[in-house]
Amino acid sequence: MAAVIYSLCAITGALCAWLLIRAYLRTRSRLLLWSSICFGGLALNNMALWADKLIFPTTDLSVLRISIGLLATLILLYGLIWEER
C-alpha cells in the first residue's frame, strides 16, 4: 500500500510541474516558471522517498530527501521574493 501512495505522490507532483510548465510556455509568467521548477523538485523528492523506503530500506537517504525538498522550496521562495515585474 505504501508503494502505491508514494508513487501517486510522485506522479501528482510531476503532473503539476508539467501543467505549470505548459502554462508558463503560453503566458511567459515568471511565477509559473518558478512554481514548475519547485513542483519538479517536489516530484523528485517523492521519487527519492520511494527509493528510500522501497528500494534501499537499509540505507538512510533522508538527508538527500530533505536537501531536495529544501532546494525546491528555496527556488520557489526566490521566485516569490526577488522576481519582480
Rank of each mutant, 00 (worst) to 15 (best):
I5V: 14
C9V: 13
A10R: 08
A10C: 09
I11S: 04
T12V: 10
G13W: 02
G13D: 01
L15F: 12
C16K: 00
C16Y: 08
C16T: 12
W18I: 10
L19G: 02
L19Y: 11
L20N: 06
L20M: 11
R22W: 08
Y24P: 09
L25S: 15
R26F: 08
T27D: 11
T27V: 10
S29R: 09
R30T: 10
L32A: 01
L33W: 06
W34L: 12
S36R: 00
C38G: 10
C38N: 10
G41C: 02
L42I: 04
A43K: 01
L44D: 03
N45Q: 09
N46E: 12
N46G: 07
N46K: 02
M47D: 01
A48S: 04
A48N: 05
L49T: 08
W50H: 07
A51P: 04
A51K: 03
I55K: 01
T58I: 10
T59M: 09
D60T: 07
L61H: 01
L61R: 04
V63S: 11
V63D: 07
V63T: 12
L64N: 03
R65Y: 00
R65S: 08
I66Q: 07
S67F: 14
I68C: 09
I68V: 12
I68F: 05
G69R: 04
G69N: 02
L70H: 06
L71Y: 04
A72L: 06
L74G: 02
L74S: 10
L74Q: 00
I75F: 08
L77Q: 08
L77W: 14
Y78E: 11
G79V: 08
G79R: 06
L80A: 12
W82C: 15
E83F: 15
E83Q: 11
E83N: 10
E84R: 13
